[in-house]
Nucleic acid binder design. Structure first.
Lengths: 217, 217
DNA sequence: TTATGTGAACTAATTCACAGCG
DNA sequence: CGCTGTGAATTAGTTCACATAA
């Protein structure tokens, strides 16, 4: 088993949430163990890959049986830094922003978006999916009080860098960037860029190829 | 230059939309050429990688100058199968679904979601961000009439497979799946799964590592 | 026999190094 | 020189093949 916490490959980390999802469902059904094969089957992956991924966490399973579900959940959460629920804020309450505010999927994985910020005076003071919307100027104080470290950025391209700067100034350390802009941040800030169109690109290409290769139109 | 249309690596395809985005902005500023270096800089990528990616499309640039912007836009769109705008439908008008209906980013890349379907009687007959919402039972006729091939799936996990089946039966050939479920589809249907939590996972891990490595808390 | 765990082989992707051109 | 274009080297990720344990 590999125990080097610092070097889990990114593709493995990206798969962890889906593993969690599968085994949490089994947990609800009161199953006590899972095999890598079970997980692989549920997700159409190669079982060896699943085993290797799980190996990175340092957990060890028992042959013929698999892994103890509770333990596996714990080490995966641990590996993801999700042991304790994390709080986040969101800047930009447009279509995508309000969707993310209402997306319960994140809570399941320990991310709780607890407040939103925007410049639109019509929204300030209201709530979206139960979360309060503040004016951007309140960001610094709010971050100081709440000690939140993660910010979700869902503003239009033009506003992205300045909203990012505001977050950084306020003390945010991790930015999940949904805007199509490369953000300039100081070294101590981590940015994760999310690009919806890249998935759409792959779908388009694969579909075009199928059509070209003579599927019924 | 590589001209084999059928074998552009997936990572390259995933980067194409961001290239398009950069050069379309330059086009608006009436620039006529871009170098791979320009694009790489705008996106914090390695210039060689950009050049290789562009090479896959078959286009050829001129040393010292770069690529002709119009031509580059054309070949990228071509490579992505986005020459002619594509129409799509969406099933599931929850938080995420309505966000995608209102997300103008897709139009830019040739995906026009022109109708939505749901089972909620309160929504049927209404419009969301200007797009009409129909009952799921209307799907077959609507697809037949509109000849739409792409479906965006944004229903909760429990409903995913049955909504997927409905799409497939109606004649949808490409499914962009935002639900956390592995879909069972016949061979001729292409499924692209989108998993928001995988990006969040990476952000968490990178942030935790930073904090552990002694950033100011 | 059915699982884990892992070194080894393989495949894919990125990056390097450099030739060639304007 | 600053750029393209590309073979070669490198690195990263996946898959195979097999040893081992219950």
């Amino acid at each position: 088993m590999n125990n080097d916490q610092n070097s889990i490959p990114s593709p493995s980390i990206r798969r962890f949430p889906s593993y969690l999802q599968v085994i949490k469902k089994l947990e609800e059904e009161n199953r006590e163990t899972v095999s890598a094969t079970d997980i692989a089957e549920a997700l159409s992956l190669n079982p060896v890959q699943v085993r290797k991924d799980i190996g990175y966490t340092g957990i060890t399973g028992t042959p013929k049986i698999g892994y103890e579900i509770q333990e596996l959940i714990n080490v995966l959460m641990q590996a993801l830094g999700w042991q304790n629920a994390r709080h986040a804020l969101l800047v930009g309450t447009g279509a995508l922003g309000s969707a993310l505010l209402g997306y319960r999927g994140f809570d399941e994985y320990g991310l709780h978006i607890i407040a939103a910020f925007d410049v639109n005076p019509e929204l300030i003071g209201s709530t979206i999916h139960g979360k309060p919307v503040f004016g951007l100027e309140e960001l610094p104080n709010w971050v100081k009080r709440s000690r939140v470290k993660i910010g979700v950025l869902t503003v239009p391209a033009e506003a992205a860098q300045s909203a990012c700067d505001a977050m950084v100034d306020a003390g945010i350390l991790g930015i999940w960037n949904f805007s199509p802009v490369k953000l300039n941040v100081p070294d101590h800030v981590v940015v994760q860029k999310e690009d919806l169109s890249s998935g759409l690109a792959l779908l388009s290409v694969r579909l075009s190829k199928r059509l070209a290769d003579g599927e019924i139109e």
